[in-house]
Nucleic acid binder design. Structure first.
Length: 154
DNA sequence: GCCAACGTTGGC
DNA sequence: GCCAACGTTGGC
């Protein structure tokens, strides 16, 4: 079992949007960064994922999910009308993948970036490192547990 | 809207 | 394979 953090801009897709899905699941489309993609390929069913709102007021962790389906082709890269179109991908050789998430919990309050920076035990989190922009990143079990505790889930 | 920190692209 | 130019991310 591994732990991850995934970023989404709430204007594009928020955790409330996920909550509004009947199935409480979503396809995590549109990742167009190799490092992020490689992490997605490493994900196993049942892995736990923190859901982060970026470009939000305030930015922060808003809940968590589990991996419902491991990596498979992201066909939005083939759709000329999609924002995620990639001219170098074909049906045969599609560079990009997505995973499916299932919502576990929406935190009662956002754990804002500011608040997280104030937590000494989280200071090594990738998310809090200067210049860290990865939209999919690994999280240590200790960090994940701490965050659930801070959110009042555990 | 600014801009620092990264990633990617493409000419050489 | 280097690296300058360009594009993107994302906090502020």
């Amino acid at each position: 079992m591994q732990y991850w953090l995934m970023k989404s801009e709430p204007d594009v897709y928020s955790i409330q949007d996920l909550q509004a899905e009947k199935s409480k699941t979503c396809d995590w489309e549109g990742v167009r960064n190799y490092q992020a993609r490689n992490f997605m390929k490493d994900m196993q069913k049942g892995d736990q994922v923190l859901f982060y709102h970026s470009n939000a007021k305030p930015p922060g962790i808003v809940g968590y999910c589990t991996i419902n389906k491991t990596a498979y082709p992201d066909e939005t890269s083939l759709d000329k009308k999609s924002n995620y179109f990639d001219s170098k991908s074909t049906k045969e050789i599609n560079r990009w993948v997505k995973v499916d998430l299932k919502l576990k919990k929406v935190f009662s309050e956002i754990l804002s970036l500011d608040f997280l920076r104030g937590q000494k035990t989280l200071k090594d989190m990738l998310l809090l490192k200067k210049g860290s922009r990865l939209s999919v990143q690994p999280v240590k079990k200790t960090e994940f547990d701490k965050i659930l505790k801070l959110a009042g889930v555990k």
